[in-house]
Simulated assay, not measured.
Amino acid sequence: MSDMNIEIPHGHGRSFKKGICDSLLSNKNHDQKCIGENLPYGHKLSYKKGRTYGDNLNHEINKTVK
């Protein structure tokens, strides 16, 4: 997992981290609100990359911790 190289534009770190948090916390309601309103213009892709990274991380955690 740590060898993933994810490229996001400068200044999109917060949207990326928000996507990871929403994925790990399984916050589907926030996902819909976040994509619609709360993200700055152009940050949707960075948020979605964060969701994908969080989903992969969650999968790895679930494999390790049973």
Rank of each mutant, 00 (worst) to 15 (best):
E60A: 14
Q32I: 09
K44D: 15
K18T: 07
H30V: 03
S23M: 04
Y47F: 15
K44N: 12
D31E: 09
L25G: 05
R14W: 05
S23N: 01
Y41C: 09
I20S: 01
H43Q: 14
M4D: 10
K33H: 06
R51M: 08
D31C: 04
P40A: 11
G50Y: 01
K63D: 11
H59N: 11
S2V: 14
I8F: 07
E7P: 00
S46A: 15
M4C: 06
N62D: 13
S15G: 10
V65L: 15
P9L: 05
N27C: 08
K48E: 15
G50M: 02
E60P: 03
S23D: 01
P9R: 06
D22H: 11
M1G: 09
E60Q: 14
H12T: 07
C34N: 12
S15A: 15
K33R: 12
E7H: 11
H30W: 05
N62W: 05
L45A: 13
P9Q: 07
G50L: 01
M4I: 12
Y47I: 01
T52L: 11
D22N: 14
T64A: 15
C21Q: 07
G50W: 02
H10I: 11
L39C: 05
N62G: 08
N5E: 12
G42K: 08
K48H: 12
C34G: 00
F16N: 00
G50N: 02
S23G: 09
E60K: 14
K48S: 12
G42I: 04
R14N: 06
Y47R: 01
V65G: 00
I61C: 11
K48L: 15
F16S: 02
L25C: 10
R14L: 06
D22M: 09
S46F: 03
V65Y: 14
F16I: 04
I61N: 10
K44V: 13
N56C: 10
P9W: 01
H43R: 04
C21I: 05
K44R: 13
V65A: 07
L24N: 00
C21W: 04
K63V: 08
I35P: 01
S46R: 00
D22T: 02
D31L: 06
V65Q: 10
L24W: 01
K49W: 07
I61V: 15
G54K: 00
N5S: 13
H59A: 12
K28E: 13
G54F: 01
K44W: 02
N29K: 05
T64S: 12
N38L: 12
S15T: 04
F16R: 00
R51W: 01
S46E: 04
V65R: 12
S46H: 02
H12Y: 09
D31G: 00
I61Y: 13
S23T: 02
R51H: 05
T64V: 13
N62P: 01
C21S: 10
G11A: 08
C21Y: 06
Y53I: 04
V65D: 07
K49P: 06
G42H: 09
